[in-house]
Each structure stands twice: as structure tokens, then as C-alpha cells.
């Protein structure tokens, strides 16, 4: 009785996951290792191709830059929200949540309007006479970065607000009575204590940017592929299922490695000691 109940409860989910996630994954990945015999050839040749490499590095570079920008903008904003009076905090949280709950197509579309050749920025600058020719902003790596920051900054903010709210304000005051000015108190007390939140937020932002499809598709275009759009192109446009499988595994492995790395950083900095002795 006692041993059977959890088994019965878990089985439907396990079956569905195994049949419709695990098996399909095997279906696309197995052929990349096996063509009559076991081989890593597909992967070796993937990483020997300059174009493939450029997509791979662009994906990592963009994800890293986006993560850094989200930390830089997210930490002060989250600190500000966490320290504002309740009334305003609710409004600010709603303002951060709203983009997060809005479709990513809409959010990328917004930046097409702003960055496009006839977009808001070019229009504005031309009217002022600062430029005579529109600047190319859309379909660049920077456009992907801006669009991705727009997509994921709210996630970083919301993750951090939760963590910073739990830091006792008296801790900052204590630091100040001991002679720390605001900046020092922030750097020496708030920042180290927010680190777990920064790590969680960074994992979300990095893996989110790495696997996002909409933003690179709409703002990057065909010249600035990321792994996700590259996978789609190989699978659906070129019908190159072998390559698509290779890219799929590379994306999964990269995501896992990045998470492990962030968690290692967290473990290294988090020296708060064990539980109550």
C-alpha cells in the first residue's frame, strides 16, 4: 500500500514524459552519433565550420552581454523597488510583470518599430537633421541584445526584488552606523547578500537568451543567426535534420554547462556557513 501509492501517482506523468519528450529527443539526437557505427564526426565537422562557429559564438556572446546588462540595470532597480513604500512597490512590480506576461512577438515587434529604417529613432534623428541617411540598427547583433534585454530584464528584476526584500534594512543601517557611506554599505552588505538572487536571475536570463527564438528571428534576421534560429533554418528550411540534431544537443549541453558554472560561482562566493551548530 505505502509503496504503491506514489508509484501510481507518478506513472502517468513519467510515461508521458518518456514517450513524448525523452523518446523524441533520442530520435533527433541518436542519428547524430550513429551512421552504421558510433561516431562524433557530426560534431567535429560542426565545430570546424567557420559559419557554424560564428553562430555558436554569437549566441554565447549575446547571451553573456545580455546577462551582464540585466545584472547592471536589474540590481539597482530591484533595490529601488524593494526599498520603496508598499503603494509604489505594487505599481512597479506590475510594471515589471506586464512585459513579462506580454507575448514575445509583440515585445520584439515593438523594437522593430523603434529600430527599423523608418523607425522611431531614425525618424527622429532625420527630422532633427542630425543624420541624413537612416542608420542600420535593425538586423544587427545589437538589435538582438536590446530586444533580449527588453525580454529578460523584468525576469531579473522580479527575481532580485524577492531576494532583496528579505535583506533586513537594519543590516544596511548597521553598516552605516559603523562608518559605511551608502555606496559602501550597498557594495559590502547588499550586494553580497543579493548574490544568490543574481545567480538565479543570471541563469534565467542567460539560458533564456540562449534559447530564445522570437527575438533573433525578428530583430536579427538571416544574417545574424543564433543557435535557435539556426536550428529552425536547418530543420524546416534546409531539411538538414542531421545538423538540426547536432545543434539541438549543443544547445542542451551549453545550457547545462552554463547552469553548472553559475552554480559553481555561487558556491564559491556563498560562505555563509552551515546551519545553527
Amino acid at each position: 500500500m505505502k509503496n504503491k501509492a506514489p508509484f501510481i501517482l507518478l506513472t502517468p506523468g513519467l510515461i508521458l514524459l518518456i514517450v513524448f519528450m525523452f523518446l523524441p529527443l533520442v530520435t533527433i539526437i541518436w542519428p547524430t552519433f550513429y551512421d552504421g557505427k558510433l561516431t562524433f564526426g557530426s560534431y567535429l565537422s560542426f565545430f570546424q565550420d567557420n559559419y557554424n562557429l560564428s553562430v555558436f559564438w554569437r549566441t554565447l556572446r549575446v547571451s553573456l552581454i545580455v546577462t551582464l546588462i540585466c545584472i547592471l540595470l536589474g540590481v539597482p532597480t530591484a533595490y529601488y523597488i524593494a526599498r520603496t513604500s508598499k503603494k509604489w512597490r505594487g505599481l512597479m512590480m506590475a510594471m515589471s510583470l506586464f512585459p513579462l506576461l506580454t507575448n514575445s512577438v509583440i515585445r520584439s515587434f515593438a523594437w522593430i518599430n523603434i529600430l527599423g529604417t523608418n523607425g522611431v529613432i531614425n525618424d527622429f534623428l532625420m527630422k532633427l537633421g542630425i543624420i541624413t541617411e537612416p542608420i542600420k540598427m535593425l538586423y544587427t547583433d545589437s538589435a538582438i541584445v536590446v530586444g533580449s534585454v527588453y525580454l529578460f530584464l523584468p525576469l531579473m528584476i522580479i527575481t532580485l526584488v524577492g531576494v532583496i526584500e528579505n535583506i533586513d534594512l537594519e543590516m544596511v543601517e548597521a553598516a552605516e552606523t559603523l562608518g559605511a557611506n551608502r555606496l559602501t554599505a550597498f557594495m559590502k552588505v547588499v550586494l553580497p547578500l543579493s548574490l544568490p538572487g543574481i545567480i538565479v536571475g543570471s541563469i534565467l536570463v542567460f539560458s533564456g537568451t540562449l534559447s530564445a527564438y522570437t527575438t533573433p528571428q525578428l530583430l536579427g534576421g538571416n544574417q545574424n543567426m543564433m543557435l535557435s534560429t539556426f536550428l529552425y533554418q536547418n530543420a524546416m528550411t534546409l531539411g538538414n535534420w542531421q545538423s538540426a540534431g547536432v545543434i539541438a544537443l549543443i544547445m542542451i549541453v551549453t545550457t547545462i554547462i552554463v547552469m553548472k558554472l553559475f552554480n559553481m560561482i555561487a558556491a564559491k562566493f556563498d560562505k555563509r556557513g552551515g546551519e545553527h551548530a
Partner: peptide, 18 residues
């Protein structure tokens, strides 16, 4: 506050956990 050089003990102690 940070230039006053007063020692303060808080109700929650406000020890730095890290």
C-alpha cells in the same frame, strides 16, 4: 550617520550573515 562614530546595537542584531 556614517560620519558620527556612534555604536548601535539593533533589535534584530543586524549581523552580516555573509
Amino acid at each position: 550617520v556614517h560620519k558620527r562614530n556612534f555604536g548601535m546595537v539593533f533589535q534584530s542584531y543586524a549581523l552580516f550573515p555573509h
